[in-house]
Amino acid sequence: MVKAEQQPSRAIWMSTLAKAPLPLLEQCVATLEDLPDYGFLRSPEIGLTMVRGRAEGTGQPFNLGEMTLTRCVVQLDQLTGFGYVVGRSKRHAELAALCDGLLQHPGWHAQVQTNVIHPLQTAAQDQRHSEVAAVESTRVNFFTMLRGES
């Protein structure tokens, strides 16, 4: 298992991989050359996550509804890579697990960060910026009129 101090960064890259659009992830992984052999420790499996919310947003938890999720575990060398992705793409889960495994590998970490994680994060950021810019254009300031005013 990974050491505790590695976890925050690992949680971040796993999340980046999980949220990545599959075509872009494929594209990024394709830039990695001479990938090591790997096998499934746990084959990709589709299942559900019960998503929870809270009353009033901050109070008592309740079950909101389910969401599809796919998970798998790959083994490469002595390392195990975990993939958890939203939706039903086994390929997405596999690539996420593969990248998670490679990122724990000292010989691969830097390359995968540069070729996969950074481009995915940049793409997500760009997307976010264009969404915020569009939403911002709808910022509204209503003026309260006095009664009888028109």
Binding site: E45, I46, G47, L48, G53, N63, T68
Partner: peptide, 10 residues
């Protein structure tokens, strides 16, 4: 489908 996880509250 099997239910694999429960999320943390949103």
């Amino acid at each position: 489908l099997p239910r694999l996880y429960y999320s943390e509250p949103l």
